[in-house]
Design a protein around this nucleic acid. Structure first.
Lengths: 210, 210
DNA sequence: AAACAGTCTAACCATTTGGTTAATATAATT
DNA sequence: AATTATATTAACCAAATGGTTAGACTGTTT
């Protein structure tokens, strides 16, 4: 039944997103995407020309998500401490809710580094980076005001994101190295945002006498 | 020419390692492995039964590398500060030298989480974990001696490794967000170990009056 | 030197895969 | 209602892929 023209395209994209995220570029199958979209396989080639093109669409979406997660649009509290606390908690929540996206991204970065890099560059041109710039300014402000020690805003943000994402992706495996019970593990995951904030803030805040 | 029996097996393994690391499980091709090993494709099935089995061998090797990188065998300086400094610099060097392994690992974790988890568990049983335990004890000692603030040894080690590996894998892409020149980027990469150590140490060291 | 066992290969196979084609169904336009 | 443009599908195809088989080569044992 020919119901609706552009809805098919969306259904395909949605299905492609789901399949590529689960199987990766090499593992994804056109037939599986078609099935999941409830559509004939030829239609995939009708709307997108090839597997590569569909993959590209998915990759774009993924990269956008990735960047927006790092940046995060925060209400601009004046207090850097609050800004960082909110940034971390928002990042961790976003990662938790979309962990597949980030795992996929980490995987594809290595499989198709050039393609990912290109898409990354393109996406950066389009996206609004003001939120990131504001945070960086706040960090520099705080350094000037001696609220925190001298740090590179870029490296600080990278450090924060590292602490957020790596744990989110690998914690199930890392826990294998420990004797924690299920309950303890859950508690650690639950408190990760606080732990990261503490770790970061203790590192950068300036004490009175220093 | 039939030269040597067990050398073929090794050549195959080596080639498999190279191909799987570059292409991932789904993207790797038996023929490519055979070619790279300079061997008939049937021989792959003669020594290993299937693609899955070869993959498993590669995965095991990878996981071992991964764990050994986290753990690192250090000479046991008495000073925790020195231990951490050495741990970070060794981890970063290992990651830099074998970045493919870690990128592959991060990718496979999400594609075959259960398989990876199993291999991880198995490998943990075999490997000598005493080095890790010693470091953890040192951390707890240092807490007792009020050299550092109260931290969970597990989380501290995870945090350190996060800061090491995430940057190593993603820095080329993250730099796209900045205006750094090539020289500046190189300098940042070069100094990453020091940056991480500072970040960590500033976070955990206890000041006199605290 | 004959028999044997282990190693290795060429040829082959069934299945899967991305992609194409030609025809059909539906919606839009005249 | 006839024509045209757009969606959609079933059937098909060539190439690629993991795997098998039957035989050949080589070194060892008898």
């Amino acid at each position: 039944m020919v119901t609706d023209s552009k809805e098919s395209e969306e259904k395909i994209l949605k299905a492609a997103f789901s399949v590529f995220l689960r199987k990766g570029k090499a593992g994804a199958r056109m037939q599986e995407i078609a099935d999941e979209a409830g559509v004939n396989k030829s239609l995939l080639h009708y709307y997108f020309r090839s597997k590569d093109k569909i993959y590209l669409a998915v990759l774009k979406h993924t990269v956008e998500n990735f960047i927006l997660t790092i940046v995060q649009d925060l209400e601009l509290t004046s207090d850097l401490k609050e800004i960082i606390k909110k940034l971390i908690s928002k990042q961790i929540n976003t990662i938790k809710e979309n962990s597949q996206i980030f795992q996929f991204f980490m995987g594809e970065v290595w499989m198709n580094p050039d393609e990912v890099k290109n898409v990354f560059r393109e996406t950066l041109k389009i996206l609004d980076k003001s939120a990131l710039l504001v945070i960086m300014e706040r960090i520099e402000d705080a350094v000037r005001r001696k609220e925190i020690r001298k740090v590179s805003p870029f490296q600080l943000i990278v450090n924060i994101f590292s602490l957020d994402i790596f744990f989110a992706i690998l914690s199930p495996i890392l826990f294998e190295m420990t004797d924690f019970t299920e309950a303890e593990r859950a508690a650690i995951v639950e408190n990760r945002a606080e732990e990261v904030f503490n770790f970061v803030w203790e590192s950068i805040r300036l004490r009175k006498e220093e």
